[in-house]
């Protein structure tokens, strides 16, 4: 991990299976807490019409934008519905449950 870690907060501030949005260094990031205990971070705006992805529904693999149901892979940011990709961010959770993002 080359990029500098930023503390976002505690993982348990995000409900299981949901997403929350954070602003780090002027970038808006949507962070999702998966049901398997992992977390994923992607850019917060849908590349189609700027929908708020942190409000989207997820499973282990994808997030669905709440506005027009475009889908993106959480791990790669790639769209499965033919839209430009999202940016992805590396996350790190420390033993105390603190959540860090690497920009």
């Amino acid at each position: 991990m080359t990029a500098e870690p930023h503390l976002l907060g505690r993982l348990d501030e995000i409900p299981v299976g949901e997403g929350r949005a954070y602003t780090v260094g002027g970038e808006q990031i949507a962070v999702f807490r998966l049901r398997d205990g992992n977390a994923r971070a992607v850019s917060a705006l849908c590349t189609h019409a700027g929908g708020p992805l942190a409000d989207g529904q997820i499973d282990g693999d994808i997030v669905i934008c709440p506005l027009h149901q475009h889908m993106f892979e959480l791990a790669t940011g790639c769209s499965t519905t033919g839209r430009p990709p999202l940016r992805t961010y590396a996350l790190h959770i420390d033993p105390d449950g603190h959540l860090f993002v690497h920009l």
Binding site: I14, R20, L45, A54
Partner: peptide
């Protein structure tokens, strides 16, 4: 009901 239930999803 959940933490941050009404937190903005587009902070800016």
């Amino acid at each position: 009901v959940t933490p941050g239930q009404f937190r903005p999803a587009l902070p800016l």
